[in-house]
């Protein structure tokens, strides 16, 4: 496991603190009571602070704590990465048209969450928190649909000539440890070209893998039969090819059927409308 994740010991009356990009996690132990708090800061300093460090500091004020009482005195906590709990709507870097019968591979960096468990005889999930607060968005129409996160991440193009395990090169290493890379293979099975500007990514159905300090999800294959038809989504369930020593960091939050049919490519601009009283 990457040094950023794993089991961390707790000392009595000492505040354990860890910074993950915008998120600061604090854990305090008092006999068999654990107190945890997460705060997000969008200041430039913490956004640029991609190094993970452990500090001991006095108890901060104005922080909302979650308190746990556990029968076995917890001596340590386990921090692990997790994928978001809702699907993601991803805007492609620049909209494009996928010609009929064409296939394209793109990479999406999914902002991850952390899971904090008590590391003892009984493993208890103490806390789950996103590293970055994502905005809500709606996928569907006015009468029904699904609550999703809006990811202001870009779908990146693969670098020509590089094996999949080394893609992509853009972004600093530290930023990449805070995102899980998801490869999406788009196929246009229709007889007409397909406009691609936004994508619905069913993140709770993805498996999270850890390989050489980077986080990956299994590959998603999306086949589309037309702009107004439902697309078929398949999850490989395996880490991308050529990844060495990949281990499962987190199982899917939701078990999926082998194939999911959904409108991955619907432009949801059409659901906007308003009726203003004059």
């Amino acid at each position: 496991m990457n040094k950023n994740w794993g089991i961390f010991n707790l000392n009595k009356d000492t505040l354990f603190s860890k910074q993950f990009g915008e998120l600061k996690l604090r854990v305090k132990k008092d006999c068999n009571e654990l107190s945890l708090a997460c705060t997000h800061s969008t200041s430039t300093r913490s956004r640029g602070k991609t190094e993970l460090e452990t500090v001991h500091e006095p108890q901060p004020e104005n922080v909302s704590w979650v308190h746990w009482v556990i029968s076995d005195e917890p001596k340590s906590v386990e921090i692990s990465p997790l994928l978001p709990d809702r699907p993601l709507i991803v805007k492609t870097e620049s909209p494009f048209f996928l010609a009929a019968g064409t296939e394209k591979l793109i990479f999406i960096g999914i902002p991850i969450w952390i899971a904090v468990n008590s590391a003892g005889k009984e493993k208890i999930r103490l806390l789950e928190a996103p590293l970055q607060i994502l905005s809500n968005t709606w996928f569907g129409n006015f009468e029904s649909g699904e609550l999703c996160y809006w990811a202001s991440v870009r779908a990146e193009q693969p670098q020509v000539g590089k094996p999949q395990a080394e893609q992509p090169q853009a972004g600093q290493q530290a930023q990449q440890t805070l995102k899980a890379l998801c490869s999406v293979r788009l196929s246009n099975m229709a007889n007409e070209s397909l406009p691609v500007e936004k994508m619905y990514l069913p993140v709770p159905n993805l498996t999270l893998f850890n390989a050489d300090g980077r986080l990956w999800t299994d590959e998603v294959a999306v086949s589309c039969r037309g702009a107004d038809e439902a697309g078929q989504v398949k999850f490989s369930g395996k880490p991308p090819e050529n990844l060495i020593h990949a281990s499962i960091a987190a199982a899917p939050r939701q078990k999926s059927a082998k194939n999911i049919f959904l409108k991955s490519f619907s432009s949801i601009n059409s659901i906007w409308g308003f009726n203003v009283q004059e």
Binding site: I133, N136, T137, W138, W150, I268, I271, W272
Partner: peptide, 10 residues
């Protein structure tokens, strides 16, 4: 964060 990105605010 609780405001939807889509439908877009206007």
């Amino acid at each position: 964060p609780l405001c939807f990105n889509e439908p877009e605010p206007s």
